[in-house]
Amino acid sequence: MTTIDGSSIKKLIVACDAGMGSSVMLAGQLKKQLKKNGVTVEHSPVAHIPQDADVVVTQAGLADRARGVVPDVPVVPFQLFLGDPKVAKIVKAIQDGSTVEV
């Protein structure tokens, strides 16, 4: 478990294998939800996750690869594309500036 401080997150990356499908869809959603919070939301292929990311959201099956690319960045794995409880928790933590265990 890692504790994430929602108020310290300025850059959230949604990663998928190619960065052209699923991550794009989810990034669009999160961008909308976090628009007011001054958070940069970008989508990226797992292999190209930027090192300055504050948190990475990715499909559970890709989480280990994501951790390999950015070992120091917390990775939030999800099962459901839309409406995943883990993703909802991290969004809420950012919106509220609260902490969350992932």
Binding site: D17, A18, G21, M25, P45, L82
Partner: peptide
């Protein structure tokens, strides 16, 4: 290849098949 690795099912009876990074 992508489908074999990770399903592109996204819920609500919808899937979004696409290629891999190499396939780009």
């Amino acid at each position: 290849q992508r489908e074999e690795t990770v399903s592109t099912f996204v819920g609500e009876g919808v899937a979004i098949p696409h290629g891999t990074l190499a396939g780009k």
